[in-house]
């Protein structure tokens, strides 16, 4: 990083913090601190929902995902617009009607205290841990590529945002998210423009897509069908996207306080609904364009030298071991194949026509397969027991391109984008962790009669404590191993389905009461964790995305069975 980059990075981050503190003036009670006095218009709600969902990994991982696996990841979001509709019809009017602070408060009205406490505890456990991991995930990437100390990177990634989050609560979070998204989208657009500009002279935007398409990267719609019927392990296809994505989005936006807390700040049901529906309209195109950026980077690397592995730290590490000769062989072979690929692609480009014939496509796909198999060989070296490195470089691809090719100043801006996109989701998480702790736990079991001023002070203290807790989790997250995003998603899948099941019973199944729901949730949670353990030990074969749907349906079924077989007399006596 040059001086110009450092100046841009520091100024951007300082601007966000100052703006957040400037917007911190709020009334000193729970309504002001957690709900911005319920005065937000729909467009602030929309920015806040989007800023909470999009973390650094969204902007780092998605282009890398498109580079390695193509664009089919966009299907993961197809269930989201449908979930927004269900939320608008059911969840939003009820949450507003009772003027709730947290989603779990409603469960006490509908069921009882123990159901409310169980679900808020599951939320705090899951969200506290996954926020810690989401601090570490971008920090380790920056640390590897820029040589920064990981502990200090964690502290800056998870610490600076605490200043405005503690000071201004939900209002500061919402306004900074608005500014953050404007900076993020502007930066990503400039990066995309420059990728196309750096392509050879005769190659334009559509030609770049044809290059990506010829190599099978423009696979937006896939059906998940293989020779043996539907592949339940295939993670991203039309059906897992619409069905699995629907349940995931419904539980995330409907029962996770970090999202519910965003649209509870709206000034009316109408403003909440408009914010959510607009999110349903713009989310799929937004992900499409981020993935498209990955395809453009892929096309760019077909005309330039693509690194064997995008995380250089791992390459350097292996060159210091007894596998250095193996690495040299792989690297030399890879360079030859890469050169061959460049010559073929450039020869098309020189004719000014990149309409690949079937023969050309087969040639390109074969070369790509050779490159991929060499990358797999290298990854096997990284996974050797004495190296124990990170063999997944998907999240490093886009940032490596930025660092290697973008001009000074812009590099600093894109590093800032990683920080502020992290801050947007972490700040919302801390705000919601604090609101659930004080409303669902502290005021229930510790001190029921607190003044508005005490509420405000305790809320700030809990926000600070959760901020420190998440940084501590981040400092220990290196024990998880390589796939951090997967760890966050799996952690979510273990708890989301069950919590969603409880809410579905609350809204749609009038006869089912508190005791039945509580034990259905406990048994459902044990079942979901058992399925996960069986899958880990290869006894069954199930993609984790399905755990959400299974958890929700299991709780609904168990709730009915327990209500009518076990708790029947109590309810009707």
């Amino acid at each position: 990083m040059s001086y110009a980059d450092w100046i841009v990075l520091i100024l951007t981050l300082a601007a966000i913090i100052v703006y957040g503190v400037f917007k911190s003036r709020t009334t000193k009670n729970l309504d002001g601190y957690f709900l911005s006095n319920r005065e937000m218009p729909w467009y602030i709600v929309l920015f806040s929902i989007m800023g909470t969902q999009a973390s650094a990994i969204t902007f780092l991982s998605a282009p890398g995902q498109a580079y390695t696996d193509g664009m089919r990841f966009v299907q993961y979001y197809f269930g989201l617009p449908l979930a927004m509709i269900v939320l608008c019809v059911t969840f939003v009017p009820i949450f507003h009607k009772y003027r709730l602070y947290t989603a779990y408060e409603f469960l006490e009205r509908r069921f009882d205290v123990k159901t409310r406490t169980l679900t808020s505890f599951l939320f705090l456990l899951q969200r506290g841990l996954s926020t810690g991991i989401s601090i570490y995930a971008p920090a380790i990437i920056l640390s590897s590529l820029l040589g920064w100390n990981i502990y200090w990177t964690n502290i800056f990634m998870g610490g600076l945002l605490i200043i405005y989050t503690v000071a201004g609560g939900a209002r500061a979070v919402a306004y900074t998210q608005q500014l953050q998204l404007i900076i993020i989208f502007t930066s990503m657009f400039i990066a995309g423009y420059l990728v196309v500009k750096y392509l050879p002279e005769d190659i334009g935007f559509f030609d770049a897509l044809k290059v990506g398409g010829a190599m099978g990267k423009v696979n937006i719609i896939t059906t998940g069908m293989s020779e043996n019927g539907f592949d339940w392990r295939d993670r991203y296809n039309l059906w897992s996207g619409i069905i699995g994505g629907f349940f995931l989005a419904l539980s995330y936006f409907g029962t996770d306080q970090s999202q519910v807390g965003r649209y509870l700040t709206a000034k009316s049901v109408k403003e909440s609904r408009l914010g959510l529906l607009m999110n349903g309209l713009v989310k799929v195109p937004m992900q499409f364009f981020i993935l498209l950026l990955g395809i453009l980077v892929f096309a760019f690397y077909q005309f330039h030298n693509a690194p064997l592995f995008f995380n250089q730290t791992q390459v350097d590490k292996i060159s210091q071991t007894r596998y250095a000769d193996s690495l040299k062989n792989i690297q030399e072979h890879y360079n030859l194949v890469d050169l061959q690929k460049k010559e073929i692609v450039r020869s098309f480009a020189a004719t000014g026509n990149v309409d690949f014939s079937e023969g050309n496509k087969i040639q390109l796909i074969n070369i790509n397969k050779q490159r991929d198999s060499l990358r797999v060989e290298f990854k096997k070296l990284v996974e050797k027991p004495e190296i124990k490195g990170d063999s997944n470089d998907t999240n490093y691809i886009f940032l490596r391109f930025v660092l290697d090719y973008l001009p000074k100043g812009l590099i600093g801006l894109l590093i800032a984008v990683i920080f502020i996109s992290s801050w947007g989701s972490i700040a919302a998480a801390l705000n919601s962790l604090a609101s659930s702790t004080i409303v669902d736990i502290h005021k229930q079991f510790v001190n029921k009669k607190m003044s508005a001023g005490d509420d405000f002070k305790m809320s700030r203290l809990y926000t600070l404590l959760w901020g420190v807790f998440c940084i501590v989790v981040a400092q220990f997250a290196y024990n998880i191993g390589d796939s951090l995003i997967e760890a966050v998603n799996i952690l979510g899948s273990l708890f989301y389905g069950v919590i969603l099941g409880v809410f579905l019973l609350a809204f749609y199944c009038k006869p089912v009461k508190g005791n039945a729901v509580f034990w259905a949730a406990v048994l459902g949670e044990i079942s979901v964790i058992s399925l996960f353990v069986l899958n880990e030990h290869k006894i069954i074969d199930l993609g984790f995305l399905w755990l959400n749907a299974i958890g929700a349906l299991l709780v609904v079924m168990l709730g009915f069975i327990l209500q009518f077989l076990v708790f029947r007399k109590k309810s009707f006596s």
Binding site: V74, F78, P81, L82, M84, I85, C88, V89, L209, K210, G212, G213, A214, G216, V218, N219, I220, I221, L238, R273, L277, G280, L281, V284, P285, F288
Partner: peptide
């Protein structure tokens, strides 16, 4: 609000159809 909900569903379906064409055109 039904008009809004139908709009969101129609936009999703149109997007999926466009994506199918996009996939076929470029691959």
């Amino acid at each position: 609000w039904n008009g809004w909900y139908i709009t969101v569903i129609v936009v999703l379906v149109v997007q999926i159809i466009l994506f199918i064409y996009f996939t076929k055109y470029f691959s």
